[in-house]
């Protein structure tokens, strides 16, 4: 039996749109769980303070640690005076190293130099190292 009231080109167009819509719906159904599966864990990079024993940071020295999924560095330049910086170079994301003799941070990738306060001393970094708040609580340092 043939339905001659609808031209075949219209039927084809309708079927193409219908198949496209079903395909898009299926792709969305499969794509959403896939995206969520691959997304980084939500707790990473999120918030609370990170604690560290005061003894871990020697006077005049530094201590590198993981802070909200990234590398940070805590310093004690004078006794009882703690500061913290992001250890991620602002040029291309390498982790800076502490040069005790020179009293500055140097990026091993492209030679970027930073002062203990994070200011750029030389090399390609476009901006200072990010500063992180530090609070003393008994014998613990609270970072963040």
């Amino acid at each position: 039996m043939e339905n001659s009231s609808v031209p075949s080109s219209q039927r084809r167009f309708f079927l193409t749109v219908l198949l496209g819509a079903i395909g898009a719906a299926l792709a969305a159904l499969g794509g959403w769980p896939l995206l969520r599966f691959l997304a980084p864990a939500s707790k990473e990079g999120a918030g609370g303070k990170v604690s560290l024993a005061k003894d871990a940071v020697p006077v005049g020295g530094v201590h590198f640690l993981q802070f909200h999924g990234q590398t940070a560095v805590v310093m004690q330049q004078k006794a009882g005076e703690f500061t913290a910086l992001s250890a991620i170079c602002t040029h291309l994301g390498c982790v800076v190293q502490w040069k005790a003799q020179k009293g500055e941070f140097v990026c091993p990738c492209h030679g970027g130099r930073f002062s203990p306060s994070g200011a750029v001393l030389g090399g390609p970094p476009p901006k200072p190292l990010e500063s992180i708040p530090v609070v003393l609580s008994g014998d613990q340092i609270l970072i963040g």
Partner: peptide, 9 residues
């Protein structure tokens, strides 16, 4: 238990 839709995969 933790990875979103990990159970499904």
């Amino acid at each position: 238990n933790e990875v979103p839709f990990g159970w499904l995969v």
